[in-house]
Amino acid sequence: MKLLTLNFLTCARRACKSSADAFPLHPRDVELEIVEAEPNPSFLSNILPRLEWPALVTLCAELGLPGLPAEAPEVAELTSGEDGKGGKLAEDLHRLLLETTVKEGALVCGNCGHEYKVKEGIANFLLPSHLV
C-alpha cells in the first residue's frame, strides 16, 4: 500500500474515531518496496492541499526516511524551477507518496494500540468481533 493512502486512514475502532491519537497510524516492523510511478508535477500540486503535513512528517521519521521540511510547501514550489517540475522537493514527494509502498508489516493505532497487518501490500482493517 502506498504511503499516500495512509493520509486517509485511521483506526477502524468506533471508540477511536474522536481521538487525535488514532491518526496517523504508526508503522511497525514494515518492509517497504519502491514501485515506480510516472512523475506528474501537476498531480502533486493537487494532492498537496489534501495532505496532513505534520502526520506525513511523523510517518517519515518513524520509517527512517529522509526528513521533509517541517512546514508544508506552497503549491507554487512544486511547479517552480527551470523545467516547471519543482525540482528536488517534487521528486522527493513523488517518491515518498506515490512510489514508496508498505509490502509487509503492521500499522498501529496510537490510541488503543490495536495492530493492523499488511500482507503482500494489502492492509487488513477488519476487527475481531469483540472490538467492533
Binding site: 493512502t5 486512514l9 485511521t10 477502524a12 493492523y116 494489502i122 492492509a123 482493517f125 477488519l126
Partner: peptide, 14 residues
C-alpha cells in the same frame, strides 16, 4: 491509491 480490506468505510478518516 489502494484497495484496503475493511468493513464498509471503517478505517477511512471522517
Amino acid at each position: 491509491l489502494d484497495a484496503v480490506n475493511m468493513d464498509l468505510t471503517a478505517a477511512i478518516r471522517p
